[in-house]
């Protein structure tokens, strides 16, 4: 069997056990998009690969293409995101971003931009104080990179330029509706206040360093969250599996003042 070995980097999204000691690992990579490959023997305690294939890890790896499923032959950690893994709230957010990124990446397709967006946001997750706005930043940039950028400047139905005001966000057309179109369309969508619209535009156009300097955005973020989660559902046509846990942990951390780490 002639083997074609490819070297690449990737972010581990998830893995499932298979057979006696193997794992099937899902990753996203900048050069070949979604990867699904088997890591033979990686569940054995002495495995050289096991510890490197933990979900939410940035790794360097070699993949051998075979007739059936690709095989990981070597793997080494670049960044293990230890801080994320020791904090329930950060981990629930990282899992959500990873699953979301994976849903927008296609198999064997170049996906540099989405890969580096996820990598950047995982790094930021470990250092920024406001992780709520980071999630919104990630979602909105992901939409832009994958051709689903919400239309916030003109009416997404008739194309007329919108004057500053509050408008409905329509999930089918993926953007705001002018007041005339709102009346004509059967289910126009969800209302966004003028400040929420401004904030979405700002996030779409700016880098995170600028966005993180904004303050008092909490109420706006709640409003934007409703619109984004419904928009996501209409694009992906499914509920993200990691979303319920994200919401649960967010609810619980609101209750308890701080989540204590295991030491």
């Amino acid at each position: 069997m002639v083997r074609n070995i490819q070297k690449t980097e990737g972010i581990v999204i998830k893995h499932i056990p298979i057979g006696e000691a193997d794992r099937i690992v899902s990753l996203i990579s900048p050069s070949i998009g979604k990867i699904r490959a088997v890591a033979r023997g990686s569940r054995k305690p002495k495995s050289k690969m096991g510890g490197h294939l933990t979900p939410i890890s940035h790794v360097k790896l070699s993949i051998a293409t075979t007739k059936t499923i690709d095989q990981i032959t070597e793997v080494e950690t670049i960044e293990s995101f230890r801080k994320i893994k020791e904090d329930l709230s950060l981990l629930s957010k990282a899992s959500y971003m990873a699953e979301l990124a994976e849903s927008f990446v296609q198999e064997e397709n170049e996906s540099k931009q989405i890969f580096y967006l996820l990598l950047k946001c995982l790094n930021l997750l470990q250092i920024v104080p406001d992780t709520e706005i980071l999630i919104k930043f990630f979602e909105l940039k992901l939409f832009s990179l994958s051709g689903f950028k919400p239309e916030m400047i003109i009416c997404s139905e008739c194309g007329i330029k919108l004057t500053p005001s509050s408008y409905k966000f329509n999930f089918e057309s993926g953007g705001l509706l002018c007041s005339k179109c709102t009346l004509e369309i059967h289910s126009p969508g969800e209302k966004l206040s003028i400040n929420s619209i401004k904030l979405i535009r700002f996030i779409q156009n700016e880098n995170f360093e600028k966005i993180s300097q904004l303050n008092s955005t909490k109420n706006l973020l709640d409003e934007i969250e409703i619109v984004i989660s419904k928009y996501l559902k209409s694009i992906l046509d499914k509920e993200l599996k990691s979303k319920p846990f994200l919401d649960l942990v967010a609810k619980q951390t609101k209750h308890s003042i701080q989540s204590k780490k295991i030491r």
Partner: peptide, 29 residues
């Protein structure tokens, strides 16, 4: 997270190198 509010002593099993493993191939975590 739940137990820490209830004043119950909690521990986890020690994490570390499996017996017979090799430092060179161990991931940093």
């Amino acid at each position: 997270n739940f137990l820490s509010e209830k004043n119950i002593k909690t521990s986890v099993l020690a994490r570390g190198l499996p017996i017979g493993s090799d430092l060179e191939y161990t991931d940093d975590l």
